[in-house]
Design a protein around this nucleic acid. Sequence first.
DNA 1: AATTCGGGGGA
DNA 2: TCCCCAGAATT
Length: 349
Amino acid sequence: MSRFFTHSIILWSKTKVRALPWQQTEDAYYIWLREIILQQTRVEQGYKYYQKFVSKYPTVFHLADAGINEVYKDWEGLGYYNRAKNLHEAAKYIVKHHDGKFPAKYEEVLALKGVGEYTASAILSFAYHQPYAVLDGNVFRVLSRFFGIKLSIDTTEGKKYFKDLAQKLLDKNQPAVYNQAIMDLGAVICKPAHPDCENCPLAEKCKAFNTQTIPDYPVKKTKKPNKKSQIFFNFLVIESDEDILIQKREEKDIWKYLYQFPVVESEKELLQIINKDLVNSHQVINSRISKKYKQKLTHRNIEAKFFEYQVKEIIVSCHFLKIKKVDLNKYSFPKIIRDYLSDKYKYLF
DNA sequence: AATTCGGGGGA
DNA sequence: TCCCCAGAATT
């Protein structure tokens, strides 16, 4: 059975259309960049970021020498911003401890910030043709369906079982071809919804297909009753002719280290923002303001409301940052905020 | 072991 | 509008 599985996947991959250009490289640094960008990210979305990073940071030295704020800025809109931080720290680590040469041992690669088992296996197999089977969402799905595995993929026991199975099925003579093939099959044929079983080379012996139970796989233990309370982000647009106030989001928070306009967060919709709210959030602002309701944004459990204020006199303490409006583009904003602002305040961006 | 991080796509 | 996707770090 495993012979059929591995052989069919390899054969299928040879019939596919040419791979994307970024799948051709065998440079570990580029593969590392690609795999970090692709974590939880669709190929269509990630590709332009990959191109940007490759051209701007052609070697690990370029990346290590860059400032973290610049890396954040280049990552803007991609999400999971800790990846940018880990990427930068790992680049500096590689320069310092590996003399800028990308490590080629599994344990060394796994030790890099932001690199887990999947990414380490991907790098080792694609760059160095070492026999490490990748285990990502695609592989979980393909294996669970084909073999009819009812073990949950999000338990320690399940992960171990799938990892051992994946490693057993790996074509040790061509780990790069095999790993790419099984992930492609999961992405193109064995999709989460509406899989294209008619064109699947594995269908003939696929347990889920033959028992009409495809929607049952993969099995997961976690239930997600994700009904969270709303948070209102009441952003303040406080500006003078040349300057504007922004704020850096602090640690242990969504959008950590990214910038935004000063905000008053609330559980309910605020009828008005008064100076007391600002004082309570440890920001002292003395001003005469007038409020104008602008627009509501919804992002998951977040409703962001924008207001516009005309400010006569501003005395600010703490961590508000007064910057030139022309420099606004140097700061990395969360996507929904950037999208809204760049559309609404074209004169600023 | 459970939770958090974020954007995109589809029902 | 809601639901789903899913690697790595953190708690």
